[in-house]
Design a binder for these strands. Structure first.
Lengths: 237, 237
DNA sequence: GTTTTTAAAAATCTCGAGAAAAAGTATTGA
DNA sequence: TCAATACTTTTTCTCGAGATTTTTAAAAAC
């Protein structure tokens, strides 16, 4: 469903417990790069920052392992999952494969309600794009972009496919942040989304998957073309 | 690599901590059906069974969410992930798609060492099959079967593809246990594996993926054809 | 007899403190 | 000066107890 309140809960619903709050706060800080890739996550240190007990924080970190945003190692604590260009390439290729298949199924199975949801999601994304000119309201655009992609494949009946894609999308978000700040390749993302929408609405699966694949690949190329020194600087931040 | 000591650590290495031990013990009990699908996992009750503290058990349960073997719900504790025929069908179809793609890549990329590993894995599996006649040494066969499938796609360079496949394999194992006990469809699994091996060794990707797809699908059909009352009985056990 | 309210019981969630292990530092010996 | 050892500090891991919340059961009201 194109539920606008849905907030990418990889795992959990609204933060009714402290574990969930800490989980969300940590996830956000990792995706936004506030906690650097590879950084050590000392429980005793972090528990104060997030205002929870040690056990609670450990549990939140354990949940983040599901999203492959945190790694743990025996008796040596937790770390932020590392990043690399090779990893992003793998994420991109796997995502192209899965998301194109999901889109194909979604276009086949989608009914009128799906079309309506898709149109609505695109409209909301467009509005966010207009507002974003100047003001750095990145969060809202990022969220609506996620929902647009989610609705595109919403009519795909495979829960597992969608589950894996939500993980990959989240992973890609870590890298995508870079490409939007240091964008060397001029790109009309709105036009890409628009073409994608038209192809999906006219049930042209071949065209839609081709566009989607290119759309996803472009983000990788964008990051790929960032000079290495500049990239490392950003990654360490 | 065809490391025979590898033990399907979805997430963790050797149990150096109590969390890891509990994680493994719980995972095993869920996959083997000792903890029934949908069953409530009361921490206060379970902590005695597994000989750990409440916090430690909670952490182990959190890790099992990664494997989609446990689900949690806000302020209402943990449960064993439910099962259904629809879910198994989804698992099967997704797995066929991913594993065939991974095999195709593996056949393309695999070198001599890969061939040797594959041959060795097949040999070990065969030996386990011979030993299994009569004696209920299911564990060893199950483990070697897993390794055979793992080695088949070991030369595939995509870590994410292999990561997702290890999750799906583990999920399928829950259902596969049923088909082997209540097998209505007569099946020569050894012959299937043998044909698969030959196709892979001769680098015939088309044939190999066709065989692999059929191989995976057959297990689903086998479970599908079990009478519903008999199935539910087993699932509740 | 059914529903609502109220109270007891159980379970979850949370924290702080203590034991075990790792990492870092200083000391000793060549 | 360098390497190895012993010591100190830090960090991880673990447990038990207390505070909320949910669930269950009983009593009251309609």
């Amino acid at each position: 469903m194109a539920n606008s309140t849905s907030t990418s809960d990889g795992l959990l619903a609204e933060p009714k417990t402290l574990v969930e709050s800490a989980y969300r706060a940590l996830r956000r800080d990792i995706i936004e790069g506030h906690l650097a890739p590879g950084e050590k996550l000392r429980v005793e240190h972090l528990k104060d920052n997030y205002g929870v007990g040690a056990g609670t924080l450990r549990e939140a970190l354990s949940l983040l392992i599901s999203d492959a945003l945190v790694v743990s190692q025996g008796q040596r604590g937790f770390r932020v999952a590392p990043v690399s260009l090779e990893d992003f390439e793998d994420i991109t290729q796997t995502r192209v494969m899965l998301e194109c298949e999901a889109l194909r199924q979604s276009i086949t199975m989608g009914d009128d309600a799906w079309e309506a949801d898709l149109l609505a999601a695109f409209h909301r994304l467009t509005k966010a794009e207009e507002k974003r000119i100047g003001s750095d309201d990145r969060e809202e655009w990022e969220e609506r972009n996620r929902i647009f992609h989610e609705v595109l494949i919403a009519a795909c009946p495979s829960r597992w496919l969608k589950h894996f894609l939500s993980i990959l999308y989240q992973q890609a978000e870590r890298y995508r942040r870079l490409s939007l700040y240091l964008q060397p390749i001029p790109r009309d993302i709105h036009a890409e989304h628009d073409a994608l929408l038209q192809a999906a609405m006219s049930r042209d699966a071949e065209k839609a998957t081709a566009l989607l694949g290119e759309h996803i690949l472009l983000t990788f190329r964008s990051v790929q073309s960032i000079p290495k020194d500049q990239l490392n600087e950003k990654l360490a931040a």
